[in-house]
Simulated assay, not measured.
Amino acid sequence: MNFAIVGCGFIAKKHSQAIKNIEDAKLVAVCDQVPELMQPYVEEHDATPYTDIEEMLRNESIDIVNICTPSGSHAILAELAAKYGKHVIVEKPIAMTLEETDRIIGATQAQNVKLAVVHPNRFRPAAMKLKEVLQQNLLGKISHALCIVNWNRGQDYYDQAPWRGTKEYDGGVLMNQAIHNLDLLLWYMGAPEEVFSMEATRFRDIEAEDVSTGIIRFQSGALATVQASTTVYPRNYEESITIFGEKGTVKIGGANALHFETLNLQDMSDQLIETTIDQVRSNPWGKSGHEEIIADMIEAIREDRLPAITGEEGRKAVELVLAFYESAKLNKSVKMTERNDSNDNDQNKITKFTRKVEC
């Protein structure tokens, strides 16, 4: 199937490499308003460059459009792609507001095209093994969980582009960095019921938060603590998820949540535990999550089924982040069923930004 990439910044490189690695995939077009950013894809993939997205979308040979632009521009671009009958793969987060998210989901459903959201951490070997542990009920009843992302993103990272660190188009550490881990937490723990959060902008000269701490009560009754920051000196310190159950304790951790730091399970033999730890250690990254998601989209189209990570799945993580933001703003706990998405953006602002900065 033929792919097009919209937005040729850093993350587009992962998409293009994943497409290159898949036998049944070909990158045929790229779109960006900065021609020099498209040149590497023209040279390596023989992709046709476009500075006008609608001109690109009129290319009937394109099957799937990968949206790799700033988060605040995802909605208008996904809607356009769907309008032209293209299947859509959108980078995380799916959008910055629930209104935008629902527009994307609605547009793809109305045009009967597939929608997949890029949450690649689900495909890491340790993350998948922890999911198996939970599905097999090896932890028993869950007491609580810890979700930690203590990373370094210097001021130079935010100064790369004017949209970075803004509330409207990028978000802070929760929406941009920790959303991967929040997606995993929801995948493991189920639906949240209530949240409380505090946040601050301590070190970075940005509009959004660079440090956040929150608490979640899930519908199951289990609790979780979330700690996220981009203020750690001098490099990434920890990315981890720990789950405590009545029959076990499991922690996947390290600087990038790639290894089992703890795997204690009442109903798993010591030998099997050691084997599992060693298997993950021997190949901690596994196959690229982007490659898994793109290959799954191809199969989903051929089999006429839902992709592995749907728009609705992507929506859950955005809703949780927005609930944290609302709680921090109001300085009180927020029930998920009662919250107000006060961060919704005005459509004209999205369109104006999209036309100015990205295809």
Score class of each variant (00 low, 15 high):
V6Y: 02
K14D: 12
Q17L: 14
I19T: 02
K20S: 15
E23C: 08
D32I: 10
E36M: 05
M38N: 01
T51P: 00
I53P: 00
M56A: 07
P70M: 06
P70E: 07
A75M: 06
K83V: 14
K83D: 14
T97Y: 04
D102A: 10
I104Y: 11
I105S: 07
N112G: 09
N112D: 15
R122Q: 10
K129N: 05
K131N: 10
Q135G: 11
L146A: 04
N150D: 15
W151C: 10
N152P: 04
Q155E: 09
Y158H: 03
V173W: 01
V173S: 03
A178C: 11
S197W: 00
A200V: 10
A208K: 10
V211R: 02
G214S: 15
Q219K: 13
Q219G: 08
R235H: 13
N236A: 13
Y237E: 13
T242Y: 00
E246V: 15
E246R: 13
G248C: 03
K251S: 01
N264C: 09
Q279G: 04
V280W: 00
S282D: 15
N283K: 07
G286I: 08
H290Q: 07
E292S: 13
E303F: 09
D304Q: 15
A308V: 14
E313H: 05
R315M: 05
K316Q: 12
E319P: 03
L320W: 03
A323T: 04
N331V: 12
N331E: 15
K335Y: 11
T337D: 14
E338S: 10
S342N: 11
N343H: 11
D346G: 04
E358A: 11
